[in-house]
Simulated assay, not measured.
Amino acid sequence: MDAERLRRLLLDQQIATMPELKAALGTDVDMTVFRKLRALAYHSSYSHRGKYYTLDEIARFDALGLWSCRSVGFSKHGTLLRTCETLVSASEAGYATDELETVLCVGVKDALRKLAREGRIFREQVAGRFVHFAADRAVRRDQGRARQVWDTQPSALAFGAGVRVVPDELKAAIILFFSLLDERQRRLYAGLESAKLGHGGDRRVAALLGLDPGTVATGRQQLLSRDVDLERVRRRGGGRKPVEKKRPR
């Protein structure tokens, strides 16, 4: 019964803090809340020092295993440390610190240093900055090769299993289409293209469209978390005008 009370609160709010959960149960004891949460399959946030909680049935994790609600980040991988380790190890071309911060929207410098010290990831200087790769040597070798392609071809985009440079004709068409959109539509379109590319998409789309990677990341996160004001899309009076049928004379 108490667990169901927490479930109803979280279904209503999507996320909640420990004080809110304790208030729902009428207790001052953290362990009481944790005992009830364990029966519900819950997640604690990797951002905000883990102070927020949600349920597995609520979270809508993206392809990277991430979900954001009201700027609070959750990961199916668990803590920030574990999330950084998993994303770096599974990445196509490793992560520089700023790239991973763009994806997670939190500072990761300390977490990456700790993982490197413990040998859980590999840290290497590439083109004047540190890039983090998988601890596994074979995986790290493939990531390093992909990183070389990215650094020498900043407009390289992934199509299927390969990597190629966007042809000039296609690039011109994309930029032309992009110029027809308003500011909000540009952000969402850039976010969509980044989500399709996967890891490194924010940086590559930003380079192609002349945007800040943070803007692309914001658009991507809004789409993946469905944080889009549909009322602004479906404006009153918008859309195709009804066709008035003419009566035969």
Rank of each mutant, 00 (worst) to 15 (best):
G50D: 03
P248W: 15
R38S: 13
G162D: 06
K114W: 05
L81R: 12
E118Q: 13
L66Q: 13
R186V: 01
E99L: 06
E92D: 12
A172V: 06
A3I: 03
R249V: 10
T218D: 14
S89I: 05
A41K: 13
M31R: 12
G144Y: 00
H132R: 06
Q125N: 03
F130V: 14
R60N: 12
I175T: 09
R117E: 15
V139M: 04
T97W: 08
A24T: 08
Y42P: 00
V165K: 04
R147A: 07
R117A: 14
A59F: 04
T215E: 15
A96K: 09
T17F: 01
L180Q: 09
L100T: 04
M1P: 10
T79E: 05
P242L: 08
R5P: 00
Q125G: 09
W150D: 02
D151M: 11
R82E: 15
V149Q: 06
L6N: 01
D182T: 06
V33N: 04
R35H: 10
S68P: 00
T215S: 15
V88E: 04
G210W: 09
G107S: 12
A173I: 08
S71R: 13
S91V: 04
L10P: 00
A24W: 05
D229R: 05
L197W: 13
T83L: 06
V205K: 02
S89C: 08
L9Y: 05
R120S: 10
A59V: 09
D98H: 12
A59M: 08
Q14I: 14
L21T: 00
Q221H: 14
R140D: 01
R145L: 15
R240N: 10
R240Q: 07
A39Y: 04
G65I: 11
V165I: 10
I175A: 07
D227H: 12
V131F: 09
S89P: 06
T17N: 01
A59I: 10
L115V: 04
T83H: 02
V165N: 12
R38Q: 15
L176E: 14
L208S: 01
F122S: 03
L176W: 13
L192Q: 09
G237E: 07
D136R: 02
D98K: 11
A93H: 11
R164K: 11
S225C: 12
K241H: 14
A116V: 00
R234C: 10
R147T: 01
I175D: 04
S68L: 09
L81V: 07
E124W: 08
G214N: 09
F122P: 00
T86K: 14
R186C: 10
Y95D: 02
L209W: 04
A3Q: 06
I121W: 06
E92M: 10
G201E: 01
G50F: 03
L9P: 05
E85N: 10
G191P: 09
A173N: 07
G162Q: 14
E169Q: 12
L208C: 03
Y46C: 02
F34Y: 14
S194C: 11
